[in-house]
């Protein structure tokens, strides 16, 4: 195949500009002070440049998070685009850190930047991975927990992209319910 002049020189633009955040738990500091913006990108090439220069999730210490959010949305419940929303949560078993975590987080990132959620992509705010000694978690955050068609579509695509077995059930929790819970259990608003 002949390359036309200039082809291959231009980067491939993404639909959205994305921001990568890093959270490192330091109990001596306020939660907000532990959250750091790493960088923003809006092309396929710049995504890979960033990805290949960042520590794989499985190598982070417990208590750390990565978050990838659309530019302008902060990875916290309080942001106006998150406060009425919720998250599709995938909880991993401890031993999956070595076998699955990096692959599942990459699939999550690719589904976000590639706009896998079709007409409901607007509802997607970002994704978070929590590295925790009791079990790691990956979640996709959406902006409106009451938008059932969007939330359930996003959940089905997320589950499919992660290659989870149909037998595995994942749940969606409203941030408002998570924020006000009195114990570690938050009820699922939807499951797929």
């Amino acid at each position: 195949r002949k390359l036309s002049l200039g082809e291959g020189l231009e980067k491939h633009p993404l639909e959205n500009r994305w921001a990568l955040w890093f959270f490192k738990n330091d109990r001596n500091r306020a939660w907000r002070d532990n959250l750091h913006l790493v960088t923003k990108f809006d092309t396929v090439e710049d995504f890979w440049a960033l990805y290949s220069h960042t520590q794989p999730v499985s190598k982070l210490s417990s208590g750390c998070d990565y978050a990838l959010f659309k530019d302008g949305i902060e990875p916290m419940w309080e942001d106006s685009r998150n406060k009425h929303g919720g998250r599709w949560l995938v909880s991993l078993a401890k031993q999956q850190r070595q076998s699955d975590l990096d692959r599942l987080w990459l699939e999550t990132l690719l589904s976000l930047i590639g706009e896998a959620f079709e007409e409901y992509g607007e509802e997607v705010c970002g994704a978070v991975v929590n590295v925790r000694s009791k079990g790691d978690k990956i979640a996709i955050w959406t902006s409106e927990a009451e938008n059932q068609p969007a939330v359930t579509f996003i959940g089905r695509v997320f589950k499919e992209r992660l290659g989870l077995s149909p037998k595995v059930v994942i749940g969606y929790q409203a941030h408002a319910d998570t924020a006000t819970k009195s114990n570690s259990f938050t009820k699922n608003k939807f499951v797929v």
Binding site: V44, E45, E115, A116
Partner: peptide
């Protein structure tokens, strides 16, 4: 239209040398 890329397309760029 919306800029959508499937995973295989995106993965093709993972180990590409940087454009000069």
């Amino acid at each position: 239209g919306k800029k959508q890329y499937d995973r295989e397309f995106l993965l093709d760029f993972q180990f590409m040398p940087a454009c000069i």
